[in-house]
Simulated assay, not measured.
Amino acid sequence: MALHAVVYRYSTDSAALDEHRPEHKDYLHSLFEHGRIVVSGPLAEGGGPGALLILDAADPDEVEALLDQDPFHALGLIVEREIRRWNPAFGGERLSPASG
Rank of each mutant, 00 (worst) to 15 (best):
V7S: 09
R36F: 11
G76L: 01
P97W: 02
I37D: 00
Y27H: 08
A58H: 10
R36Y: 02
G91R: 06
A51R: 01
G48N: 08
A51N: 08
Y27W: 07
L28W: 06
H73R: 11
E93Q: 15
D59C: 09
E45Y: 07
V6R: 02
L67W: 02
E45S: 13
W86A: 09
V38T: 10
H29D: 14
D59W: 06
L31D: 03
P88M: 08
S40Y: 03
L67A: 02
L43A: 12
L28A: 06
L55T: 04
R81Y: 07
R85G: 10
E80T: 10
D61A: 15
V6H: 00
R84V: 13
H73P: 00
E93H: 13
G35Q: 05
A51F: 00
P88T: 04
L75S: 00
L53A: 06
Y27S: 05
D61M: 07
R9D: 12
R85P: 08
A89H: 12
D70Y: 04
G41E: 07
D13H: 08
A58R: 14
L55I: 06
G48C: 09
A57D: 02
V7D: 01
G46R: 11
L66P: 01
S30N: 09
R81L: 11
G47K: 11
F32S: 13
D56E: 15
R84N: 14
H73M: 15
L75W: 04
L95D: 04
G92R: 01
S99E: 15
A89C: 11
L53F: 15
L66C: 01
G91V: 04
E33W: 11
E82S: 13
G100L: 11
E23C: 08
S14D: 14
H24G: 03
L67G: 01
D18G: 12
W86C: 02
E23A: 15
P42C: 10
W86D: 03
D68V: 01
L67R: 02
H4R: 02
L3K: 06
E82D: 13
P42F: 05
F72Q: 01
A51V: 04
V38L: 09
A58E: 15
E19Q: 15
P22T: 10
L95V: 03
G35V: 05
Y8H: 15
W86Y: 15
G76R: 08
E33S: 15
H24Y: 10
V79E: 13
L28Y: 03
G47E: 12
L53G: 03
S11N: 10
P97R: 00
P60Q: 08
G100Y: 09
P49T: 03
S11W: 04
Y8M: 06
G48T: 12
L67E: 01
G100H: 10
D26M: 11
A58F: 00
A5H: 05
E93P: 00
D61F: 11
D70H: 07
V38S: 02
E45F: 11
V79K: 01
S40D: 09
D13T: 09
F90M: 14
E64T: 13
E80Y: 02
F32D: 08
V7K: 11
A51M: 13
L53M: 07
L28P: 01
S96F: 09
P22G: 07
E23Y: 00
D26L: 13
L53W: 00
Y10N: 09
L3H: 04
